[in-house]
Amino acid sequence: MKRFFYHLFRLILALIFIYAGAVKMQDVVAFASHVAAYQILPYAMNYLVAATLPYMEFLAGIILLLNARVRPALVVVGSMTLVFMVALISVLLRGLDIDCGCFDPSGGQDVTAGVALLRDVGLMILVLLIWWLRASERKAERGTRDEETYS
C-alpha cells in the first residue's frame, strides 16, 4: 500500500513541477514580470531567475517522473517550495496585491499570494510524504533481504 502511495504522490508532484516549469518556459519575459512584482530582487536579477527557475522545476519534475535520484530531486523541489513560501509570506506582510505567477505567467489564473501559500504548504507536505514513504519502502526491502539471508 505504501508503495502505491509513494508512486502516486511522486507522479503527482512530478507532473505539477513539469507543468509549472513548462508553462513558464513558454514566456520567460512574462514570468520575469511576475518575479519583479514581488519587489524582492534587484531589477536585472528578476530576469536571471526567470531564465533559470522554470528549467530547474522542469528538470526536477522529470527526474521525479523517472523515479531516479528521487531524494536529490525532492531536496530541489522542497528547497524551491520553501523559497516560494518565504517570498509569498513577504508579499503578504508587505500587503502587496499581486498575482503569484506560480503557473501560467500570461496571467490567466490570477492566484493571490494567500492561496498560493496554502498550495505551497500542500506541496511541501507532499514532498515530506514522498520522502517518508520512500524511506519506509527501503527499510521494508532491507528487512526482507535480511530475513532471506538468515533463513
Binding site: A51, T52, L53, P54, Y55, M56, E57, F58, L59, A60, I63, R69, P72, A73, V76
Partner: peptide
C-alpha cells in the same frame, strides 16, 4: 541538478 537546470535555462 540545480546547476544543470540553470545551465539549461
Amino acid at each position: 541538478l540545480i546547476a544543470f537546470g540553470a545551465l539549461f535555462g
